[in-house]
Design a protein around this nucleic acid. Structure first.
Lengths: 339, 339
DNA sequence: TTGAAAGCGGTACCAT
DNA sequence: ATGGTACCGCTTTCAA
């Protein structure tokens, strides 16, 4: 009963060799485009391949070649954030494009439970991939430890403190400072912040940039924290903030999604943006275009981060020692209508 | 110079056997938790493993076991849609959870270019995975053909017409009909539709459901088409529709993202929702909560689809012939405030 | 130019 | 309970 559809065994090099009347070595040479295959052998092999329906067994190739031509992109996020975060998708596409160009396969692995963690660690240790890109690792992440143990070439997107490994990222702190200075230059004097994800470098650094910019004028009462970069979190935080400080005339939300939620809350409460209160976000994701008025924000080159990370792993795989320090990509301030 | 970091060769079973003073067979038995390993051997091996830092080479295991304990989830979408579509993420998480439970690794593969197509086909043919889940395949998709050729157990999410393969999905047509009937029951008589993605079963079937529900009253002038399920597409289509038919009192957008765009456009044009015009969407994604008023829509069990698809591939891998026909999941209408 | 044979790192069957 | 050995499918010398 339990026979399974595709019962007929897959054809091997051996089969091809036999039907073509040559040796396995010759078939292999043909397959790998090496010299020294006679025209006669060549056509015989081509026919044989078509006849038996051959395609190479990668496990065998990997075993003998000791490489897989694949790179993992590991994302460690709780459910909802994984779905909401626009950067992850863009990073993934960027990495995929760059790897694809080099004929590498991107395999995207999700870590969503403790069970996933150990399985992914095994996957890495098992040599399924030649390298790894790690997104949104946190401090003391088990995946991070696994990677160090297994010694697979890895590049991090973002910069978990204390990590000594190549990484690519943006200057969250500096670009936030720049953004806030721009906001202050428009005449806003009572500026609040919706902070989030403080357990990650992105969240913590954006808060640091905010306090940098405000200097003496920084008032901790004007900072409302919410755990994650979510629309709802932004709306709730905005309400809380406005209750505490009704005289607010500016808000920096640590992500566009938070900013969109904040704007919704403001409008529901009858405050006009930007007339009554200026709102700025961070990411320049699709959110920034969906709000009305359109959001002023910092452009995060998510796709570029993916591409840079891919380039870095490829370099590491090739054995070039890339920059030990991190690579920082540009993050221009994009000024629209919300402030 | 180009030495590459982790130069020291990885330890093998052989190394473990030697340092433990036993044979490879014994080590293998130990590793696989079989009987007949003496306590002495056991502890010697355990020590040896720790000492040499052994972890199994998966390529070798795959080769001899003829399976990989991995399943691919293949998504074939253009950039922007991949980023916008909330269902893909939820399907992925559902599949990951179900596979993880069975100790299978999900590998997510993106097809984003012609180059990707052939590489992914090779990946599949190469036996990197024991099965595949295919999301958003289209008619005559090269990936679909590759899967058929390679004979790897596969399950489709959605139902590309003409495909004879197991699939899981929802009744787009029936649930749309139900939704529209509900909308009509609220007294709307001049109902338009924003259709999209007509080259896919989801898009085409939702249009069919719409015409089903309207019957004689169906007026092709009231259908505006836009290529993809995007916010912007919804806004543009809404404007076009309203220009053609200013007397519209209801709109069905083929996805929540389209509906959100449409609502934005309506509000920009000074129409009140739901007073002047009732709006309904499809998906019950996060969009539905972000609009104000909250969107009436059809609940798409995206996570459940992922889980069901995973269960189906696992069954196929195990050699059980699952249902030849497709599996349909429930799609309740969720009535909120936009209509 | 080609064939034969030795591995790559495991697993599994066979005696012992 | 354990060691020896054949073999998974392919690449890569080495001789011929």
């Amino acid at each position: 009963m339990s026979q399974g559809g595709q019962s007929r065994k897959r054809a091997t090099v051996h089969d091809v060799a036999r039907t073509a009347g040559v040796s396995r070595g010759t078939v292999s040479r043909f397959l790998n485009g090496e010299r020294y295959v006679s025209a006669a052998a060549r056509s015989a092999i081509e026919q044989a391949i078509a006849e038996v329906g051959y395609s190479p067994n990668t496990a065998a190739q990997n075993l003998v070649r000791q490489r897989t031509q694949a790179v993992a992109l590991i994302v460690h996020e709780p459910h909802h954030l994984f779905l909401e975060d626009p950067n992850i998708g863009a990073i993934t596409l960027g990495a995929n494009a760059a790897l694809s160009e080099a004929d590498y396969q991107l395999v995207f692995l999700i870590v969503d439970s403790a069970r996933d963690t150990s399985r992914v660690a095994r996957y890495l240790a098992g040599g399924f991939v030649d390298g790894a890109i790690v997104v949104s690792a946190r401090v003391d992440d088990p995946i991070t430890r696994a990677i160090e143990r297994v010694q697979v070439p890895a590049v991090f997107v973002g910069h978990p403190p204390g990590l000594t490994a190549p990484w690519v990222g943006i200057d969250n702190r500096g670009s936030t400072r720049e953004l806030i200075e721009r906001l202050m230059a428009t005449g806003r004097s009572r500026i609040g912040m919706i902070a989030a994800a403080l357990d990650r470098d992105s969240g913590a650094d954006r808060l640091a940039g905010f306090t940098d910019a405000l200097g003496d004028r920084f008032d901790p009462v004007l900072v409302e924290e919410t755990p994650l970069y979510t629309f709802r979190g932004g709306a709730d935080a905005m309400r809380a903030l406005l209750e505490r400080a009704p005289d607010l005339d500016g808000v920096f939300a640590a992500s566009d999604s938070l900013a969109a939620g904040a704007m919704q809350a403001l409008q529901d409460m009858g405050r006009r943006v930007p007339e009554d209160i200026g709102v700025v976000g961070f990411d320049d994701s699709a959110w920034a275009h969906r709000t009305s008025p359109a959001l002023s924000t910092v452009h995060q080159p998510a796709r570029g981060l993916g591409e840079a990370a891919a380039a870095a792993v490829l370099a590491a795989i090739a054995g070039e020692d890339g920059p030990t320090s991190g690579v920082l990509l540009d993050t221009p301030v994009v000024w629209r209508d919300s402030a």
